[in-house]
Structure formats: structure tokens, C-alpha cells
Write a protein that binds this DNA or RNA. Structure first.
Lengths: 68, 68
DNA sequence: ACTATTTGACAAATAAACTTTACATTTAGT
DNA sequence: ACTAAATGTAAAGTTTATTTGTCAAATAGT
């Protein structure tokens, strides 16, 4: 699963720490997520979409490997 | 988090077992999800949206309690 | 160059998602 | 009423998300 959180964050011009606060998660969670180290829960994904005011599909996209 | 998987499934007229196969999870996972017993992972949520050909936000909606 | 801020990274712990197996209950068809 | 299919439920186990704490590396401002 790919995500464009870093890009959305850049658009809003906020730091990982600030986004973490808005999304109510730890900064490490945002960081690891941006680096593709793991996939956020659906609740967090929905929160982020709401924060960035975009559809989830605009931020998160499935890859072929996600269907194995 | 609420979801309308049961409704989407009804639209397609398929059983939990059939959806489970399409989404590549166990039938119990679909069942528990429909009953609100737990929230699917983002990967599974994206898979379901793709299967039903709708936006994730059409299936999954945040509730106030998801922001606590 | 110095300093502060931001980001990347790791480890240990907890919580939550998901699987498998198995059984009970409900629903629909005949 | 009988039967088969579909759905609900539960326990035990595995995997993955998330937290907290901590430190190193990179970036930006002065």
C-alpha cells in the first residue's frame, strides 16, 4: 500500500509532530507511515482523509502485493 | 466506525462466504465486521471498496467516538 | 559554526486485526 | 416438519498497528 501523506502534509505545510497531534497519534506513527513501514488502521486513514479534506483513495492506493 | 458492508453485499446479492473469498479473508472476518465487532484494516477496507466499486467513505464512516 | 527543529530509526510493550476450528441459530425451499 | 444454506458466536493463536522512550542524522536559521 502506498500513501501520499508526506505530500498532503507538504500542501498543508505542517510537521509530522503537528499532523500527529491533529490525527491524535504519536509522531512515530506518522513517521513510520510516511516511510511505508506499516499501514495505518482504517480509523486513522479516515481521520487523515478528514484532516486533509480528501478522499481516502486520494491518499492510499492498493498495490498488487496487497492482494496476495 | 460504522460500515454498510451488509447493504453493499445485499446490492450485489452475495453471501458472506462469497464476499470473504473475493476479499481474501475468512468468512468470520466479514461476519464480525458486519456486526461491528471490529474495524477492518485499511488494506481490507480498500479491497472492499474496490470489490463494491465505491469510495471507502461510502462504506465506512467515522463516528465521534473514533476521535477519542 | 552553533543551535533548534525536524525527521529517521530502533526496541520493548500493548492493543487490535485476523485466522482457524468448531458449534448453535436462523432463514428459505420443498 | 425436514433439510440445506447462511449467519451468528466463541476460544485460542498469530500477526500487525500503535505507543513510549530514546538517540542519531539531517535541515534551516542566525
Amino acid at each position: 500500500m502506498k500513501n501520499s501523506i508526506k505530500v498532503e502534509r507538504a500542501k498543508k505545510n505542517i510537521t509530522q509532530a503537528e499532523l500527529a497531534k491533529l490525527a491524535k497519534v504519536s509522531r512515530q506513527t506518522i513517521n513510520a507511515m510516511e516511510l511505508g513501514k506499516y499501514v495505518p488502521s482504517t480509523v486513522l486513514a479516515l481521520r487523515l482523509a478528514q484532516i486533509f479534506d480528501v478522499e481516502i483513495s486520494e491518499i492510499f492506493t492498493l498495490e498488487d502485493s496487497d492482494w496476495v
